[in-house]
Design a protein around this nucleic acid. Structure first.
Lengths: 211, 211
DNA sequence: GCTGTTACCTACCGTTCGGTAGGTTTATGG
DNA sequence: CCATAAACCTACCGAACGGTAGGTAACAGC
């Protein structure tokens, strides 16, 4: 009994995931989902309150999974560089394997208010995830691993922006799958900056324009 | 006659903009739009092929406007730092004033395939805009203003990611409006990197962990 | 003054939507 | 052997959807 229940529920979730990810919330009909899952519509409404509730279940799962990856990746490394690399590599890897779930996560973050069901609470989970990265960066600033001249909010924004853009970018074009090497280079850019390095050759074009 | 035509068409476009931006494509009905615009449904279908055509008109406008800003901001400044700052400041400013149009632009870029009407071509315009930034960066690399150790694609990704994340972030929370100062600091982070500067104080925590 | 075109209008079409009422099967506990 | 409840099923609802058929008012050209 419990096994069958789980199966049906899981079947619905998997079908809904695929549909929502590929078609968005509004454009996906409940009929589509139950057809894919090969269950009846009342079966869906038995397991979930309504269409919005089904969607919410997926969104929560996506954000929680992402949080888990952040924490795990950070815990398995020492030093901010290795941590950021690990986080990026972990996200890249998970994105490759769970493209659809991640697409839902992003879609809800960036979507218009009405695109997604009302009363869908996800901002708290977004903030929690962002806050975790911010705390990492703040700690690294205290230990001297990161520049204290920047606000830790700015740095967190910077890294999160870099990370998310890469994730979205490679969500769109599915051929180019980013790997650990990509993660390393992204972190390198984040840490070292785009300007030419002073230790390589002293160039002072920049400072003239600044002031 | 021509005046009335323009008025009606413009009324529809403005109403559609507001609706699509706040509710997304699928969740917005043609009826909503014509109600807002205070025109009849056939009036809409007289001026536009269908719902998708109306949407496409808005998307194209958004991307083209963004392209215009990119070019103008780059032309009015010398040196990559000033150019990037100008671009960011220009985008920030335009986002504040044309929140809805920009929201549509972003929504289509990140949306699921089915969320947006089929046969909607926007990738070429996205690429054109990105390509412009890339060309700027490539030129700056040649002139020695940017580090040649990074691929220009990587740098363009980095800057575009930083920029877009800030834009999206401030699209979500409308209280915090980024200004030119924000633009300067973002560019500073992009150029200088997050790692502590050698000229300030020699710290060698990083290099120990790197290898 | 008739015709053609533009720029709409009212009224309605067929379809699909999210959701449900009410009956049926299956497992379990007494 | 029967009662209860879980886990569905078929069949259908009213509402809303995108889109259109067919009529009309206003003006231009001949």
């Amino acid at each position: 009994m419990a096994k069958d229940t789980l199966d049906t529920r899981q079947l619905i979730l998997r079908a809904a995931l695929k549909r929502f990810a590929n078609g968005g919330y509004a454009a996906t009909s409940v009929q589509d989902i139950v057809d894919d899952a090969q269950v009846s519509k009342p079966a869906l409404y038995y397991h979930f309150k309504d269409k919005a509730g089904l969607f919410q279940a997926l969104v929560h799962e996506a954000h929680d999974e992402r949080y888990r990856i952040l924490r795990e990746a950070a815990a398995q490394a020492e030093g901010i560089r290795a941590q950021l690399e690990n986080i990026l590599a972990g996200l890249f890897d998970y994105f490759g394997k769970n493209r659809e779930l991640m697409r839902i996560s992003f879609a809800t973050m960036f979507a218009a208010p009405g695109e997604v069901p009302e009363n869908l609470s996800y901002t708290d989970k977004c903030e929690r995830n962002f806050e975790f990265v911010r705390s990492l960066i703040k700690r690294a600033q205290k230990s001297g691993e990161l520049d204290k001249h920047f606000d830790c909010q700015e740095l967190a924004f910077g890294f999160y922006g870099l990370a998310n853009f890469h994730l979205v970018g490679h969500l769109v074009c599915k051929d180019c799958q980013p790997d650990r090497l990509t993660a390393q280079r992204v972190v390198e850019l984040f840490l070292a900056g785009a300007a030419p390095k002073a230790d390589a050759k002293k160039i002072r074009v920049q400072s003239k324009e600044k002031k």
